[in-house]
Structure formats: structure tokens, C-alpha cells
């Protein structure tokens, strides 16, 4: 099962597409996966809370 994996498609010198290189890089994905919710959810959310006005 483990010995069937050698690639058959594409000549060895053919460049790996950029998207595939991204998906093969767990640490880049880790960065994106933490940065995305940190900015869009946490930071944006906390900014909204900090802008709530005082009761008139």
C-alpha cells in the first residue's frame, strides 16, 4: 500500500503548481488559519466592543 505512491503524471522537472505548494506547506496554512479568524473575528469583534458609546 505504501509503495504505490510514486507519481506517474508529469515529468519530474515539471514545476509544482503554486496552489499545490501552498497546500503542501502545513506551516503556511497554520499561519493563514490562525491569522484569518484572529483578524476577522477576534480583532474586528473586540474593536466593535471598544466603540460602544456611553449611555447618554
Amino acid at each position: 500500500m505504501s509503495d504505490q505512491s510514486t507519481g506517474s503524471g508529469g515529468a519530474p522537472e515539471e514545476r509544482v503548481p503554486a496552489m499545490q505548494r501552498l497546500l503542501d506547506n502545513p506551516f503556511l496554512l497554520l499561519f493563514m488559519g490562525v491569522a484569518s479568524p484572529a483578524v476577522l473575528y477576534l480583532i474586528w469583534g473586540v474593536m466593535e466592543l471598544s466603540q460602544i458609546p456611553l449611555s447618554p
Binding site: 505512491s5 503524471g9 499545490q20
Partner: peptide, 15 residues
Amino acid sequence: MAITPPQNRLWWKEP
């Protein structure tokens, strides 16, 4: 299979 590496090294190019 899903528990072995993709057979095709350049799987991104598959249609």
C-alpha cells in the same frame, strides 16, 4: 486512497 499519498505527484493539474 485517502490514506496514502496522491498517486499523481502533480495532482493539482488533474481535470
